[in-house]
Amino acid sequence: MDELEFRRRIYADPETTDSDVIAAAKADESKRKFWNEQKQFDKQLKQAVKVDVPEDLKHKLIWQQSANEFASYQKRSRWYVAMAASIAFTVGIGFTMWYHQPVSIGGQALAHMQYAETERAHSLLPVDLEQVNAKLASFGGSFTDMIGDVEVVNYCHLSTVRSLHLIVDTPQGKMSVFIVPERGDVRVPAEFEDKQYHGESIKMHHANIMVVGNKGADLTEMKKAVTDKIHFSA
């Protein structure tokens, strides 16, 4: 190996383990000397490239990763929180809507009819117009005249609606008249029935009137009587 090639190889890699370079160095004292000088020089170079590393760099690197991760964790947990909040909100809205869904009180009135059968028994005192109007007054209404042979007049709750229940004896059998104050969340069906009774409702300005009679009973007359005679003050 000539001098130039030897130098090239040493310069390129002073720590070479190539056998031909080693053999050339063994055979030539001056080459060995050159190589040793180069190794020495390389030590200095290695020293020179070892610039000081900022003391806090390591901590910064570990910290920035934690910070980065925390940020993405926050993002992730925000997502979870948003999800949970959304579900809770939906459940809440759903529950509220279920709770406040318009109550259909036709069924309630029919159920009340059963109850009224027993109710009637223990108030055999006749009811006069004054008594009826006294109770109707809390709804702001009154009858100008009696609507027939009223046997019972009582407040009752149809679902959550406080109503006035009159039981009237008619030639067509017992009929019930419910006076239900107007409320936005209450739905009064125009007609309703079960096996025993059927009912119809009349929508008035301040209240709904429901007339319920036995199956087959004609409610027209009673409806007419009620609408003619009832008046609301406001």
């Binding site: 090239r8 310069y11 390129a12 890699d13 002073p14 180069q38 020089f41 170079l45």
Partner: peptide
């Protein structure tokens, strides 16, 4: 290898 050689050569 050439660049390494030249780098050290220039430094020397």
């Amino acid at each position: 290898m050439t660049r390494l050689f030249r780098a050290r050569n220039q430094l020397r």
